[in-house]
Amino acid sequence: MHSSSISLCVPPPNSSLLNKSHKKCLDKLPFAPLNSQLCGLRNEVLRFSFTRFKRCEQHRVRKFVRNNVVSGLVAENGNAPTLFDYDLVIIGAGVGGHGAALHAVEKGLKTAIIEGDVIGGTCVNRGCVPSKALLAVSGRMRELKNEHHLKALGLQVSAAGYDRQAVADHANNLASKIRNNLTNSLKALGVDILTGVGTIMGTQRVKYGKVGFPDNEVTARDIIIATGSVPFVPRGIEVDGKTVITSDHALKLEFVPEWIAIVGSGYIGLEFSDVYTALGSEVVSPLFHFFSAIYFFKTAVL
């Protein structure tokens, strides 16, 4: 195991950026060069406890210390000092990448996250969140159709119906709300959001960019790969988005087929079986057990 040495030169702090109570804490910093063994810039190296500040203020103080108090050069294995753009770069802004970014900021690391699509990844945009929104609708539909149960409660309800587009909008709006919340939380904590497809170019170097635009490159002491997943499509199967679709298409609820065969009996297949039967589709039984989540549709027209 090799270690990295860092020489920290700590000048007197610019107290104009902080209030008096903050300045008292910063005044306790040792204003002299320190030599320590560490991995990354951590608060313990400064012998300075960020817990002296309120939780809502800790990020501001960490940023101040990193940008205005600490100037350091890291030399590894006796080589020339090296500076990085970030302590940590995360490729993928799904739930995993978002959680990693929050933890990194909590530890005082300068962090960036790269996303080639939308913040939130599979779970928020094409998985857990919209599917649970559709399941909530299917559950209500089943309750409204259960005349025997409603009658026992003394309730009388006319024939239950639904607006397909309104149901689809409900799922999409919920995903959009959570996606915006995740984005705002990253920005509020000072995490840089880099847009584009991330590619590791070498040791501690990452390239990112969009098709048709110039690529950018950043360096980082550490890199986390959190790229998520996409639906698996077996060889020989052509997904046309109409008669053969994946779970991504199914969540959009662009139409409700007369009958549907679901290939895959995992939780994804079971969830869609519940949703589409509640909305009036006939699900082919039994569910085919296979290694995919491809959905075969046949409408009344076909």
Rank of each mutant, 00 (worst) to 15 (best):
C56W: 12
N68Y: 15
G269E: 01
E76C: 11
L189S: 14
V118M: 06
G190Q: 06
K210Q: 14
P13Q: 08
G266W: 06
D87P: 02
D215K: 06
F291G: 00
E258F: 09
S21N: 12
R55F: 08
E258K: 15
I113N: 05
H98I: 13
L26K: 07
L46S: 04
R179Y: 02
D27R: 04
I119N: 04
G92H: 06
K107F: 07
M201P: 01
H170L: 15
S21R: 13
K28W: 00
V263S: 10
T246K: 06
T277V: 02
H149V: 12
V69R: 04
D274I: 01
L135M: 09
C123A: 13
L182S: 02
S158D: 15
N14I: 06
I294P: 04
M1D: 12
S4G: 11
P257L: 03
H149A: 14
L182A: 04
N180S: 11
G264C: 03
F288I: 14
L270W: 00
S176C: 01
V211P: 00
V191D: 04
N180F: 01
K54T: 11
N181L: 11
V157E: 14
V256N: 07
G116R: 01
T122S: 09
D248G: 01
V233T: 13
T122A: 11
N67P: 00
A112E: 01
L279N: 05
A152L: 15
V89I: 13
A75I: 13
G72E: 01
E106A: 14
R66M: 09
N43C: 13
V74G: 01
I113T: 07
T227R: 05
T199E: 13
T227S: 09
F288S: 13
N216T: 12
G280Q: 05
K28M: 05
A175S: 15
I260L: 14
G72Y: 01
L144Q: 08
M1L: 12
Y295D: 00
E238D: 11
G269S: 03
A75R: 13
D222T: 12
E44V: 04
N180Y: 01
W259G: 06
V301N: 14
A152I: 10
K24N: 09
